[in-house]
């Protein structure tokens, strides 16, 4: 069974169809880019896959144990109130709650993993900082670290590099690719096609009249 199977999925709001009869499937270790114009339904699709938006028809099926091992998610916009008191450490750690079942407190394993992800994204020094005092790019890294904490076999990213400078984007792609090489399935919505394409194995293009899903290569950029 594949990692993820989307079967004739139709999505929409209040009777208005946004995505019609979409089918594709993803294997372990695939790196799928989702591209398309503004308003074509990319975010709607990711939210449906995450179970945050019920489909009008069709089905979304996960491979065995995929859901249980955790799905990481980086939202396009996080509607976090301006005055929310939360430290970077608290936010990153909260990524693994979904997988902790009934355990009430973080254990050593969770804390070590959080350290690892902070280091991976180069934000160890921000650990004690307050989230809302960070720059947009720093906030994005914190949220990616949180998503990586949650991701067991599948990671969904909705425009992860929006608002990042070219170097930071490249950096972020590398971090994601490193985890992808370890077998993590990646589904990334992006408008930065030229930047992300070399890393991807598949591209899903969502258009108003035509939707295509194609293999684009091995996604082996800097596989030195």
């Amino acid at each position: 069974m594949s990692l993820l199977e989307v079967d004739r999925l139709t999505l929409g709001y209040e009777g208005q169809t946004v995505i019609k009869a979409l089918s594709f499937s993803m294997e372990k270790g695939d790196y799928v880019l989702i591209v398309g114009e503004n308003g074509s339904g990319k975010s709607t699709l990711t939210r449906a896959i995450l179970g945050l938006k019920p489909p009008m028809s069709g089905a979304i099926r996960f491979g065995e144990g995929v859901k249980e091992s955790g799905v990481g998610y980086l939202p396009q916009q996080t509607v976090i109130q301006r005055d929310f008191p939360a430290s970077v450490w608290e936010i990153v750690l909260s990524g693994c709650l979904g997988r902790m079942k009934r355990k009430p407190f973080y254990g050593k394993a969770e804390k070590e993993k959080a350290e690892e992800n902070l280091a991976l994204l180069g934000i160890e020094d921000l650990r004690k900082s307050c989230y809302r005092n960070l720059s947009g790019g720093q906030q994005q890294r914190v949220l990616l670290a949180r998503a990586l904490m949650a991701a067991g076999e599948l990671l969904l990213l909705d425009e992860p590099v929006a608002g990042l400078d070219p170097r930071a984007s490249e950096e972020m792609y590398r971090v994601i690719k490193a985890r992808n090489r370890e077998g993590l399935g990646v589904l990334m919505v992006t408008h930065d096609v030229s930047g992300a394409l070399p890393y991807a194995t598949h591209v899903l293009t969502i258009g108003h009249d035509k939707t295509t899903f194609e293999k684009v290569g091995e996604g082996d950029k800097d596989n030195a």
Binding site: L50, G51, L52, Y73, L97, G98, R146, L156
Partner: peptide, 8 residues
């Protein structure tokens, strides 16, 4: 949203 998506 993230909490729900990550399985809580």
């Amino acid at each position: 949203d993230f909490a729900a998506a990550s399985g809580m």
